[in-house]
Each structure stands twice: as C-alpha cells, then as structure tokens.
Nucleic acid binder design. Sequence first.
DNA 1: AGTGGGATAGCCT
DNA 2: GGCTATCCCACTG
Length: 203
Amino acid sequence: MNHYVPMPQSFYEQPTLQLAQALLGCLLVKETEEGVASGYIVETEAYMGPADRAAHSFGNRRTKRTEIMFGKAGSVYTYTMHTHILVNVVSSDVGSPEAILIRAVEPFEGTSLMENRRPGRSRKEWTNGPGKLTKALGIQMNDYGHHFTASPLTICEGWEQDSFHISSGPRIGIENTGEARDYPWRYWVEGNSYLSKMRSPTT
DNA sequence: AGTGGGATAGCCT
DNA sequence: GGCTATCCCACTG
C-alpha cells in the first residue's frame, strides 16, 4: 500500500517562482465524508505579492480575504469567483503575501466521485481549470486558512520531477493589469492533456 | 467576442 | 443596505 506522503513544511519555504514549478507533479488530495479524491498538479500560476498588480495583495492590501496570504507558507487560500472556488498555496515568508494558484490537475484517485461532482462532462472537463478542479475534488471555502501538510486538504508526493518537462508563459484572466500581464509566471507540464484552455497565442 | 451567471468581500453611503 | 470588482465557466452565434 503506497500511501500519500504530505510534503514537509520546508517544501513550501522555497522561493515562490521555484515552488510554483516544484508543485507540478505533486498530488493534491482532498478527503471528504464521501471519500478521497486526488489529482496530479499539472498547471500553476504565481502571484508575487505587493509589487504584482495582478495579485490580490498588490500594494500590501491586507483585508479579511487576503489575510492568509500574509501567513505561513503552505497555508490554504481559497477564494470565490462568482459560483466558482479557486485554491491557492500561500508561499514566501510570514508578512510577505505571495501565493500560487492551482489551475489544473490530472485525476488520480476517486474518479467516480469526480464524475458525480461534474455530471455530464467528459473526463477531461472534470479538472482542466481552477474552478473545475475545486468542484471535482470537493474543495470548499471552509478549507481557507488550513495548512497543506494536514488533512483534509493536502499536497503530497507525486511524479518524479525528472519524468516530465515544464513550460512557462503569461498568466490568464488578468488582461487589465498593465505590464504584469506579460510576466511568464504560469507553469505547466508540457504536453499534458488536462491543462486549462490555452488562450491567445498572439505570437 | 460577447454575455449571463449569482458568491463573496470591500467600500461606500 | 446597495453598489462594484473579482486570479472563472459555459453558453451563444
């Protein structure tokens, strides 16, 4: 029985851009009363804190919502966007509000649960976007403020880091944020078929 | 490309 | 209490 091994605290204490890449291939695991669902992280986006116009914490904006971004690396930052919930990994030192958005995962365990939570969708459509994967895995707003080293929401060892290639490019959904829009702070597992939709090649 | 959806939080009265 | 923005999604055509 090969069981889930949560990444240690030290894993989360590497620099944000490095952590955003290190998270690729890790398993995102959510336990609920219905059972366990998990998927391999295949796409992430870094948000670089006070200097990043696209980040919620731009200009050190500190509110009830962003408060956790100022907390310990490895904390869970959930956020609602209309009907959708997005999940982020807090990074950097306490007081330095940086975070990484998990944009897509590849289903692993609990696929029948995911299917029930994403009725009528093809397998690919279960988790190939930040709002979709939270629904498929059962991630809720009450996961806010927990830590990824402890149940019910954990990040665990997954694929070997040398078993895939990492690509990077501009982030998504932040068209109106000035020069920050072009920073290549989105990372993904090259060629994976569960990535979120790629937009605007615009060469 | 445009747009409706309908969940928060923040910021103003 | 009302307005507005938000690190999206799915549906139109």
